[in-house]
Amino acid sequence: MSYPQGTQHHLPVQDAPKPRKFGALAWTSLILGIVGLVGSPIILLNNLTAVIAGVGVVLGLIALFGSRKILAGIGVVLCVLAVVATVVAQNAAVKALDEAFNGTTNEGTVSGGDAKADAVKSPPTWDQRYTWENGLAAEVSAPAACTPGEFAIPSDVARGVKVTVTVVNGSDKPFDTGLLSAGGETQFAGKKAEKIYDSSGACGDSALATATVLPGKTFTYDLAFAVGAEPGELQITLQPDFGADKAIFVGQA
């Protein structure tokens, strides 16, 4: 005896899911890019995160040939931005450190004579007033000839000149002139000009007299320098404290 066979139903065969090619690399690139961006503003640490971002760029470029192209592209972009941000942050840090240790130059205002001038383009000269941001100001008089005495230091001076420095305290706090760096970077005709120490002669002692200048008050003292026998350009640098803006007075002597 035979029995009728029922209709057989076959389940459709499902294709096995295709593995996502380089998917892990795409995700890794994205994560490294995020880490690189987060670490880019942090000095010292950003050296490490920049290297990590560089690795992320390589992995992301490889992953672009896989199935996660959009994800890999985002990872590459983030990694490149992280490297760029790190370079910008480090350059800014170097500039800030340089200003902190060496100070800026002639970023204050100059007045005297005709009108205010741009100190960067037109450095202050004799009898002009240079004003720092906090209101402290200084003037340097035109150099006058002086003859060093027998016991002056240095002893082999071809020609001596003397200037008068006037400190004007336009700030709201007392100023200690002992903080003022004056004469250490003086140049004449492109060469270093030495201070003259001549306590018993006409040039006088160039050691800075320490004084506290109250707000609204002034203080003056003399500096003498050994210069060449022939007239030339004299450059005198004043700096009110370590790392502050430098006022460079330039003129003939």
Rank of each mutant, 00 (worst) to 15 (best):
V167M: 13
E133S: 14
V88P: 00
V165Y: 02
S200I: 09
R159F: 02
V157G: 03
R159E: 05
Q128H: 09
D118V: 05
Q90M: 10
V80T: 04
N91L: 13
N106Y: 05
L97D: 15
A202E: 15
A137R: 06
T109L: 13
D98Y: 07
T131L: 02
Q187H: 06
A145P: 09
N102E: 13
A93N: 15
S155C: 00
L78G: 10
E185W: 14
W126Y: 13
I70T: 15
L136Q: 07
G73F: 11
Y130R: 02
A100T: 08
S155Y: 09
G170Y: 12
A93H: 14
G183Y: 04
S199L: 12
E194M: 12
V157D: 01
V167C: 07
D198H: 09
T105W: 07
P174Q: 10
A96H: 06
N106G: 04
N106C: 08
V110W: 06
C79A: 14
G75I: 04
N102F: 14
T131G: 01
T186M: 08
P174R: 10
V161Q: 04
P174S: 09
A92E: 12
I70L: 15
K162I: 04
K195I: 09
E107P: 03
V83E: 13
E99M: 12
V87N: 02
A182K: 01
V84C: 03
K162W: 03
R129Q: 15
T86A: 12
T125G: 12
V120H: 13
W132R: 05
R159G: 04
L81D: 11
F188I: 05
P174L: 08
G178I: 02
A117T: 14
S171N: 04
T125W: 06
F175R: 04
N106F: 09
N102A: 10
F188Y: 11
T186W: 08
D156V: 04
R68F: 12
S155G: 11
E194G: 00
I153T: 15
I70P: 00
N102H: 13
T109Q: 11
D172M: 06
V88A: 10
E99I: 03
V110D: 02
D118E: 11
A115H: 14
A117M: 12
Y130K: 06
V84A: 13
Q128Y: 08
P174V: 12
A189M: 07
E107V: 03
A96N: 11
A92W: 02
T109N: 11
V163A: 01
L81Y: 05
A142T: 14
